[in-house]
């Protein structure tokens, strides 16, 4: 049987080319079931990624690669695994998913008829600056490109000016000094040539940019128990591979951006500002003082008990 799949945008790069696309293109081999996939990257369809959950629910697609930041428009609870400041590194990202993903799954099933099969992070979204900025406190008075509201709040709290801007325009804007700094993953930055125009990078992850796979629940229920187990196992394997690859890619891109070896991407000579305790404290403080309260309001309005559940799990682990 065939599954209609809405995938990542093609522009994502290696995770798309090496893992997700082959996984679905040879869906029978990946799952060990008698299945195939009609796989469409989201950017070739004209459908916006913010519509991911609505796509699964409508049943147009059986499986959708869900980008958590955009879909949090419809399901704010999805951000609970990745509030700004919650995950400065991969270890805390793993912990966040273990603690809070069950809550997210519940809401996806109840409100969006969606079975969440797994999640993985693109990787730490870090700060690239053109003027030399030594630490996060140095952002005071700087114009910083952000791509969602919680980052904007955080930049604001550091005394910077958040500037929302489309990804393709960022490189020029950095070059011409329209903005001073910009946030993204180091491999996206590498591919878009940001290090050409920036001078420094501060490797503190503002967030992890999660992605997940959702399957239409009705479709899921047509599978037998054995088939469900096989399907889940296949996605678990894919997730594990992507988690690992994501971390490797992050390390390599950081290395390449700063002229290190070995490097299979474009090599640049950015200065890496070693984050100090003050930086990690700033990020943690932002979580308590900034991103959690902002999210709390929106999430509780949409899902009852949302923020309380977060406090009991992630909040407790972080000592909030």
């Amino acid at each position: 049987t065939q599954f209609k799949v809405l995938g990542q945008p093609t522009s994502i790069g290696k995770i798309f080319d090496e893992l997700e696309k082959p996984f679905f293109e040879d869906f029978a081999k990946s799952t060990g079931l008698d299945v195939s996939a009609n796989y469409n990257p989201v950017d070739t369809t004209g459908i916006k990624d913010a519509e991911g959950l609505r796509m699964v629910k409508s049943g147009l697609f059986d499986i959708v690669s869900l980008r958590f930041s955009p879909i949090s428009r419809d399901a704010p609870i999805a951000l609970g695994i990745d509030l700004v400041g919650q995950n400065p590194d991969y270890k805390s990202a793993k912990q966040s998913t273990e603690l809070f993903l069950p809550e997210v799954k519940k809401v996806f099933e109840a409100s969006f008829n969606t079975k969440l099969l797994g999640v993985w992070p693109f990787g730490p979204q870090v700060l690239f600056c053109k003027p030399e900025v030594a630490s996060l406190t140095g952002l005071k008075g700087k114009k910083v490109r952000v791509f969602d509201q919680s980052m904007a709040n955080f930049v604001d709290s550091l005394g910077g000016t958040p500037v929302p801007m489309a990804f393709p325009e960022v490189q020029q804007a950095l070059q011409r000094g329209v903005i001073d700094c910009a946030l993204t993953g180091p491999s996206s930055a590498n591919a878009a040539g940001w290090p050409e125009v920036a001078t420094t990078v501060i490797p503190v992850g503002f967030s992890m940019a999660f992605n997940g796979y959702g399957m239409n629940l009705d479709r899921w229920n047509t599978l037998s128990a054995d088939q469900q187990a096989a399907m889940q196992a296949a996605f678990d394997t894919l997730d594990a591979k992507i988690w690992k690859r994501s971390e490797e890619l992050y390390d390599e891109a950081m290395r390449c951006n700063s002229g290190g070896e070995p490097c299979s991407l474009k090599s640049y000579s950015l200065k890496v500002m070693k984050p100090g305790k003050a930086d990690f404290d700033a990020v943690k403080k932002a979580l308590a003082a900034n991103s959690f309260p902002a999210w709390q309001k929106i999430c509780d309005a949409s899902t009852e008990g949302c923020s309380a559940a977060w406090m009991k799990t992630v909040g407790k682990a972080k000592g909030l």
């Binding site: 209609k4 004209g46 459908i47 519509e51 796509m55 409508s58 049943g59 147009l60 489309a166």
Partner: peptide, 22 residues
């Protein structure tokens, strides 16, 4: 090709095109 869900999903396409700052 795909049945009615496809037509349903076009609503978000229309909103996506028209609610676009570019």
């Amino acid at each position: 090709l795909y049945g009615l869900p496809l037509v349903d999903s076009m609503g978000s396409v229309i909103w996506g095109v028209l609610n676009d700052n570019v």
